Amino acid sequence: MIELHIEGMSCQHCVRAVTEAIGAVAGVNGPPEIDLDTGSARIAGNADPAALIAAIAAAGYQARPRD
């Protein structure tokens, strides 16, 4: 399980955009669990975290590993 903090999400449209970006990364197993209130995402699979962060950035949001 990979956990990321995502900045810039403010609505369900944002959640959909991030979900689609994450889903396009190789190694992701199923849709991510995204919590709009906390700005967190939990991603199942063995995807490269750097690839996930890059895909989220390409969608217009900032992501980093959760502390």
Rank of each mutant, 00 (worst) to 15 (best):
D48I: 11
A41C: 07
H13Y: 13
N29T: 08
G39K: 14
E7K: 05
A50K: 07
L52I: 10
I43P: 05
A41M: 00
G60F: 11
A63V: 02
D37C: 03
A55Y: 04
A55F: 06
L36F: 05
D67Q: 10
I53N: 01
M9F: 10
V15D: 06
E20G: 01
G8Q: 03
T19D: 05
A63T: 03
C14D: 09
A54S: 10
G45E: 00
A51I: 08
Q12M: 12
T38P: 10
C11F: 02
H5F: 15
D48Q: 03
A57T: 11
M9H: 04
S10M: 06
I56R: 05
C11Y: 01
I53K: 06
A58K: 14
G60K: 11
R42E: 11
R64P: 09
V28Y: 01
S10K: 13
I6M: 11
V18W: 01
V18A: 08
D35S: 13
A51V: 09
C11R: 12
I6A: 01
D67I: 12
A47Q: 07
A54N: 10
G8M: 03
T38Y: 02
I56L: 00
I43T: 06
N46M: 00
L4H: 01
I53V: 10
G39W: 14
E3H: 14
P65V: 11
S40Q: 12
P65A: 01
P31W: 12
A17C: 04
